[in-house]
C-alpha cells in the first residue's frame, strides 16, 4: 500500500465543501440535446455543483472563482460593446436585470447569456437511473424520456456506453468524483471530493477484450508521471453469450483494476 499515490489537496479552495456526496431528495430537470444533458435551472445548477460536483459549468472556472470573490461579474469594454450589438441585432426579451462591472463602473448587462451545466451521458444516466433525482426531457419536443429510451439514445451515441457506464458505477460506488479525462488522454479522471479541492489522483483507461498496447502504455505512463497522477487500467469483463447492449444485463459486468506508475530505480 505504500506505493499507492495519495490524493493531493489544492492550496486555494474557492468553494466551500458540502458533505453530501450526491443530490438527495430533489427533482432536477435536464434536457437531452443529442450530445449531452443540459441543466438550465439556476437552483438545480447550484445543487449539482455543491453535492458531488456533477457536470461542467459553461463558464470558465476562473470566472466563477472571480465572481465568488468580488460578488460581481467583470466584463471587458470590447465584450460590453459586442453585447450591445447583439442586443440591436437579436433584440432582448429578458425580464430580469443583471448588474456587471465594466472597467470599474457598474452597468446593466445588455444581453444576458444564461449559464448552463452540462452532464456527460454516464453522469446523466447515473443521476437518472440510480439516484432517481433527474428527469430527462428531449430538447426538441420537451417529452420526457424513459430509462430504456435514454439507454438506447446513449448506446447510439457511443457503442461502448454500457462498459463505460459499468466502470462509472463501479468507481462511483467507491466514493470518487468522476470527470471526463480527455484532458490527460484517458476516459475518466478520478478526484477526491472534487476538482475544486483536490488534484486528480488517477487517469482511467478501459481495457475491453484486448491487451494493453505497449507503446500506448508508455505514453500514458509518461503523461501521468508529469502530471503527478497514476494510470488506472480497468479491465471490463462480460459473459460472451449475453448481449452487452441490453440494460438488464448491466449487473453481469465485472471489473478488475491495476494501477501503473513509472518507477525510477536509480534513487532508492
Amino acid at each position: 500500500m505504500a506505493n499507492v499515490r495519495k490524493p493531493m489537496s489544492k492550496k486555494r479552495k474557492y468553494q466551500s465543501f458540502e458533505e453530501k456526496p450526491f443530490p438527495i431528495d430533489c427533482n432536477l430537470i435536464g434536457y437531452f440535446t443529442g450530445l449531452d444533458v443540459e441543466i438550465f435551472d439556476e437552483n438545480s445548477i447550484k445543487t449539482l455543483a455543491n453535492c458531488g460536483c456533477f457536470g461542467e459549468d459553461s463558464r470558465p472556472r476562473q470566472m466563477i472563482s472571480a465572481i465568488e470573490k468580488s460578488g460581481i461579474e467583470k466584463m471587458t469594454k470590447a465584450m460590453y460593446e459586442q453585447k450591445l450589438k447583439w442586443r440591436e441585432k437579436f433584440g432582448s426579451s429578458q425580464a430580469e436585470t443583471k448588474i456587471i462591472s465594466v472597467d470599474g463602473k457598474e452597468k446593466e448587462d445588455p444581453f444576458i447569456i444564461e449559464n448552463t451545466r452540462a452532464l456527460f451521458p454516464e453522469e446523466a444516466m447515473f443521476l437518472h437511473k440510480e439516484l432517481n433525482c433527474l428527469e430527462i426531457r428531449n430538447a426538441i419536443d420537451g417529452k420526457s424520456l424513459s430509462t430504456l429510451e435514454l439507454w438506447k439514445e446513449f448506446c447510439e451515441l457511443n457503442e461502448s456506453f454500457p462498459s463505460h457506464y459499468a466502470a462509472y458505477v463501479y468507481l462511483k460506488s467507491k466514493n470518487w468524483v468522476i470527470k471526463l479525462g480527455s484532458k490527460f488522454g484517458g476516459i475518466f479522471l478520478l478526484y477526491k471530493q472534487g476538482p475544486a479541492f483536490y488534484h486528480a489522483t488517477y487517469i482511467v483507461k478501459l481495457v475491453v477484450n484486448e491487451r494493453i498496447d505497449m507503446l500506448e502504455f508508455k505514453t500514458h505512463e509518461r503523461v501521468a508521471e508529469n502530471t503527478k497522477k497514476q494510470m488506472l487500467y480497468l479491465e471490463i469483463n462480460f459473459p460472451d453469450d449475453l448481449d452487452p447492449l441490453s440494460i438488464e444485463n448491466l449487473h453481469k459486468f465485472t471489473v478488475r483494476e491495476a494501477a501503473f506508475q513509472r518507477k525510477i530505480l536509480t534513487t532508492y
Binding site: M1, V4, K6, E19, K20, P21, F22, I24, F126, E130, L131, A166, V169, Y170, L171, K172, S173, K174, N175, W176, K192, Q193, L232, E235, N237, L250, H251, F253, T254, V255, R256, E257, A259
Partner: peptide
C-alpha cells in the same frame, strides 16, 4: 487500493445510498 475513500466520513454517513448502486463487483 482503490477503496481508500471508503474510510472518509462522507462515505460512512451516506453508506446506505452507496450500497444501492454497488452492484458491479470486482471479478
Amino acid at each position: 487500493f482503490i477503496d481508500i475513500l471508503k474510510t472518509e466520513l462522507q462515505y460512512i454517513s451516506y453508506e446506505k445510498f452507496f450500497q444501492k448502486f454497488c452492484y458491479i463487483k470486482r471479478k
